[in-house]
């Protein structure tokens, strides 16, 4: 029971971090149709900026400053890069962000070096929030969950309850009409791109301190963020939320299970040993396969339900 509850908590908190990451991606995609390959790179920049800024002014102010910096960077990229490429079509935009990911990663290396930086947990978040049975639940994970939920709430309120949110939604579905009504659609695009990047930056502030801040941190989360966004349904914030939790919990529990096909066959009386053909397949444990599951889910989802869990369009 203890194991189950703790695993569930771990799964949910990991899922929430994934959500923080993928929400920005989803937002940008639903708005502009741009699959931002550099999204994870902005996540990394968030972590590094928070580390550097945090050295001067502390973790909590950095929690606000870093996303703003990353957001501005994102807006600049949209204004001076993406907008130029826009006329060449979506593939060019996608390739642009693809190259941008390389560029950001290398620039980060030039500025902060090749090794991990000592980005430490602030004293206020160091320690245990509560102890369940005998396992303690770290404060940082609690904080991570709190920030993610607050973020979900504020993004949702922003989109549904404010004027700017209405304009964004209008520009999303009817860009020409919105433009005709006098709204500056390119600026809205810039805003959305910057905003999405800021969300990635915020995830970076938390993710960097929870894990490790190093130049490869972007590459390590990059693919999984895509999986979340696609499985949830391109462009659906709620779908991304659901998919994040699903993948987080699924991966956590898969690790916990030592089942293998060999074991299952053994249970029904068929013995599998090293002489059996394809032994390496039979002996694989679910826990070993765990990290592959998201990709399997992605492929299956795209085959059977290409619009994703809550998505509205297939392409």
């Amino acid at each position: 029971m203890e194991f189950f509850v703790i695993s569930l908590l771990n799964g949910v908190s990991y899922g929430l971090l994934l959500f923080m990451l993928s929400s920005g991606l989803t937002l940008i995609f639903s708005m502009m149709g741009v699959l931002n390959f550099a999204h994870a790179a902005f996540y990394m920049v968030g972590a590094y900026v928070a580390y550097s800024v945090g050295l001067k002014i502390g973790f909590f102010p950095a929690l606000f400053v870093a996303p703003v910096v990353v957001g501005l960077l994102g807006a600049a990229v949209e204004r001076y890069g993406l907008r130029t490429v826009h006329r060449w079509g979506h593939v060019a935009e996608l390739l642009f962000t693809f190259g941008l990911a390389y560029l950001i990663e290398e620039t980060v290396k030039v500025i902060w070096g090749l090794a991990a930086v000592p980005y430490r947990v602030p004293a206020a978040l160091d320690g245990h929030l509560f102890t369940l049975y005998s396992t303690s639940f770290p404060k940082l994970r609690g904080f991570m969950m709190l920030v993610a939920l607050l973020m979900l709430l504020s993004v949702w309120l922003l989109l549904k309850r404010t004027r700017i949110g209405l304009v964004i939604q209008a520009a999303l579905t009817h860009p020409h009409m919105a433009e005709a009504l006098g709204h500056n659609v390119p600026r809205v695009f810039m805003l959305v791109f910057g905003g999405g990047c800021a969300l990635a930056g915020l995830a970076g502030v938390i993710g960097g301190v929870a894990f490790i801040t190093e130049p490869s941190m972007a590459a390590s989360v990059g693919p999984i963020v895509f999986v979340v966004a696609v499985v949830g349904g391109m462009g659906s914030l709620a779908g991304a939320f659901l998919a994040s939790l699903l993948i987080g919990v699924m991966q956590t529990f898969a690790i916990a299970l030592d089942w293998s096909l060999a074991g299952m066959l053994g249970a029904i009386g068929i013995s599998v040993n090293e002489a059996t053909p394809l032994y390496s397949l039979w002996k694989l444990q679910i826990s070993q396969v765990a990290p592959v599951l998201p990709y399997l889910l992605l492929v299956l989802m795209l085959i059977f339900r290409p619009k994703g869990l809550l998505g509205t369009r297939a392409d």
Binding site: L35, H90, L94, P223, F226, V227, V230, M234, P291, V292, Y295, L296, L298, V299, L302, I303, P306, A314, D315
Partner: peptide, 20 residues
């Protein structure tokens, strides 16, 4: 089965699968 972005994503998924 699909073209466009879906095709791109599905190839990404298969690539990661085979690599893992």
């Amino acid at each position: 089965k699909r073209a466009g972005t879906t095709f791109a994503m599905i190839t990404l998924g298969i690539g990661e699968l085979v690599f893992s």
